[in-house]
Design a binder for these strands. Structure first.
Length: 270
DNA sequence: ATTGTGGCCTGCCCGC
DNA sequence: TGCGGGCAGGCCACAA
């Protein structure tokens, strides 16, 4: 799924419904799904006795802070659980999927796809369901690997992060270490709205173009967020063979840019 | 150091 | 109906 809008929708759901519920158990049947050295033994030992106390998000990374361990009369704050949804991950809360339906993955509820589960004392669960296993569960993830959150981008930060980049502007926008949260669909929509050719070298953008791009990022996140997700862009339904630009009717071009499938209008994106 | 490429993993859809 | 190929909104390690 998951670009920043879907992760934000999940964050809101978790924040509204999964906080302050004592954790009594963890299922981590897929050790491969735990990343950066985390093991099933560690995660199943560390979460029970705690509660989630805050649901945060940095880019596409969902961060769940935990409380001190009640059983040990521990006063130190607990670790932070990091959930990354990858391309096909989805969080289920008490059996219900959060966020919007996946566009490029099955939305079937197959228990074989439950890669990680947290059980609450009240009988409820928080489950990561991921057919392709491209998501990840992390403990105390390193947030310094991520750049500024896409919701906070300004013209100034854009100039600072992209100004010196000698790569296609599309590839630069997808670099999570510079700007965190934008994925393939959002970037195509943003560049389409900003009238910019995705192949343009990021360092070649003029000051007005940088302003346009920053503005398009804000507008796109706000508009698509309201509509219900990354797949609700104006470009979305034309993103297929034979698709035409919704603005001027020109045939869209399809290329690979930054290693990703890219649809753009050669008439108004320059 | 930065940038580009390939790989990871599995499901689904299309054409034969 | 079955099968193979290609594609998919993620990230990471590696090579140049």
């Amino acid at each position: 799924m998951p670009e920043i809008l879907e992760v934000e929708a999940t964050r809101r759901a978790v924040g509204a419904h999964a906080l302050e519920r004592p954790i009594v158990g963890v299922d981590a049947p897929d050790a491969w799904y735990l990343k950066r050295g985390l093991t099933p033994a560690v995660i199943t030992a560390v979460l029970p006795g705690r509660r989630f106390v805050a649901a945060r998000r940095h880019g596409k990374l969902l961060l769940l802070d935990t409380s001190p361990d009640a059983a040990r009369a521990d006063t130190d704050a607990g670790p932070t659980l990091g959930l990354h949804l990858g391309m096909t991950g989805r969080v289920l809360l008490d059996g219900d999927p959060t966020g919007d339906p996946l566009r490029y993955a099955s939305n079937r509820d197959d228990r074989d796809w439950y890669r990680f589960s947290v059980h609450f004392a009240d009988g409820g669960t928080l489950v990561m369901r991921d057919p392709r296993r491209l998501g990840a569960v992390l403990l105390d993830p390193d947030e310094t690997r991520l750049g500024i959150d896409a919701f906070d981008v300004t013209t100034a930060t854009l100039r600072e992060r992209l100004g010196g980049r000698r790569s296609p502007v599309k590839a630069a926008l997808l670099q999570q270490r510079d700007i965190a949260g934008l994925g393939n669909l959002l970037v195509d929509e943003i560049l389409w709205r900003a009238d910019l050719d995705p192949h343009r070298d990021a360092s070649s953008l003029t000051a007005p173009e940088q302003r346009r791009l920053a503005s398009a990022i804000r507008t796109t996140l706000r508009t698509l967020g309201r509509r219900g997700g990354s797949h609700t862009g104006d470009l979305m339904e034309s993103r297929q063979p034979g698709g035409r630009c919704p603005r001027d009717g020109a045939p869209l071009r399809h290329d690979t840019v930054g290693g990703r499938s890219t649809w753009w209008c050669p008439k108004h994106q320059r």
